[in-house]
Amino acid sequence: MKMNPLGRTGILVPELCLGTMTFGTQTPEAEGHEQIDISLDAGLNFLDTAEMYPVNPISAETQGDSERVVGTWLAKTGRRDDVIVATKHSGNGWDHIRNKAGISAASIPEAIDGSLERLQTDYIDLYQFHWPNRGSYMFRQNWTFDPSKQNRVETLDHMIETLEALQAAVDAGKIRAFGLSNESAWGTSEWLRLSESGHGPRVASIQNEYSLLCRLYDTDLAELSVNEDVGLLAFSPLATGLLTGKYQSGAVPDGSRLSVSDGLGGRVTNRVFPAVDAYLEIARKHGLDPVHMALAWCRTRPFMASAIFGATRTVQLKHALGSVDVTLSEEALDDLNEAHRQHPQVY
């Protein structure tokens, strides 16, 4: 499996990353362990989790269980040095996680220590902020996002104090690298500027949604990524399963994400299914599996560090891993770009 640099950290990550957000709800512990084993055998040694996981549903009762599943695998196998573990500070919004408190210099040590305990390790390779305190246009908020409500001075003060708290964690050996999630070009540029002014670790990556159906990253963030060596960790590269075609014609397979998440977080619109039809037709035309096509396309993007996919069941994991053997022709890439022109930003 091809390895890519994680920013300027010196860490190399594989082109695919195993997302664990269903570990502890839809994916039981034993199957989660099996998925990690299979991934490592395939050369995928990159695991992404978060203190707020699992999802489907998110609940106080299960909060942290995805990290715990990874942690029990680490404890059982003793293979900590064989994997790159990424996790996230949740930020504001959840009653059962620090009473909805945002990211702060005070909350960072507590959040890191909690993740370390659940992961049963003494260091985290990539520590990410799940979303910015000031708000974000991600998760379909781009239609109403209003940055005029932000206070620039407060935002920059917050960035400085949290970077300094992160540097203390780096100095203590608790984290190796720092990444963002659900961030903007302006936000990332300010994190970079302040870190280069000496306030803390340099941003290594941005974890934002990206797929054939969601290409917001192609604009300003793409240029920032390439010029500043801040790679994209693309989440939902299969558009929460939409690009597999399994939800076409009103289908809702048992155990699927749509069966437990109505509307897939706003992704199901009256424009999404015609767009999926267009991509499925391209896959048929070129003799490609839709899953392999969608993941192989991510590899062609000049800013891509790794595409994070989740697999509720092990059979889905094995299927997705086959994408690394697929190379898209120029004709297929041209067809995919034309489909995007016909179906831009469908949710």
Rank of each mutant, 00 (worst) to 15 (best):
S181Q: 10
A296K: 08
D37I: 05
V346E: 09
E281C: 05
Y127R: 06
D41Y: 00
A86G: 11
H89A: 15
R79K: 15
A332M: 08
V326R: 03
A320R: 06
E61K: 14
F309T: 11
K149Y: 01
F145P: 00
S115V: 08
A101K: 15
R140P: 00
P57T: 15
S261I: 04
R313H: 13
G263I: 13
P147G: 12
L12D: 11
V324N: 01
G187S: 12
Q63M: 14
M138F: 05
L16N: 03
L44R: 03
S195Q: 09
G114V: 06
T300S: 14
Y210P: 00
A86L: 09
S205H: 02
S66T: 09
G173Q: 12
P290L: 13
I97M: 05
L336S: 02
H199E: 08
F23R: 10
A320H: 03
A177E: 07
M138G: 00
D277M: 04
G245I: 04
M293Y: 02
E29I: 04
R267H: 06
T9F: 07
A165F: 02
C17M: 13
D41G: 06
D37Y: 07
L212R: 03
R134N: 03
Q150H: 05
G173R: 04
I36E: 07
L116F: 03
R152W: 02
N4H: 15
L116T: 10
D82I: 04
P147Q: 12
Y279F: 13
D48Q: 09
L224Q: 05
N133M: 09
E67K: 09
K88D: 04
R118Q: 08
G32R: 09
L156C: 07
W143D: 13
R98I: 04
Q207G: 07
M138I: 00
L166E: 04
P14I: 13
T121F: 08
R215M: 07
W297L: 15
T162M: 14
P290T: 13
P147D: 15
T162H: 03
T327D: 14
Q120L: 08
V69W: 03
I282A: 11
K88E: 08
G198Q: 09
G32S: 11
E51W: 00
G322Q: 09
D277H: 09
S66C: 09
T22E: 12
L232K: 10
L6Y: 12
I160E: 14
E51L: 11
H96G: 01
C298I: 07
T27F: 04
V268P: 03
E196Q: 14
G265I: 03
Q141L: 12
L156V: 14
L221K: 04
E51S: 13
D157G: 08
Q150K: 05
R176G: 08
A305W: 01
H292N: 13
F303M: 06
A204V: 01
A283M: 04
A105K: 13
A172M: 11
M21R: 00
N56S: 14
E51G: 01
A172S: 12
L163H: 02
L280V: 02
K100E: 14
V272L: 06
Q345K: 09
A172E: 08
S261W: 07
E330V: 13
R267G: 06
L232E: 02
S195A: 15
L180C: 09
T314R: 14
G93E: 06
A75M: 05
D335G: 09
G19L: 07
Y127E: 04
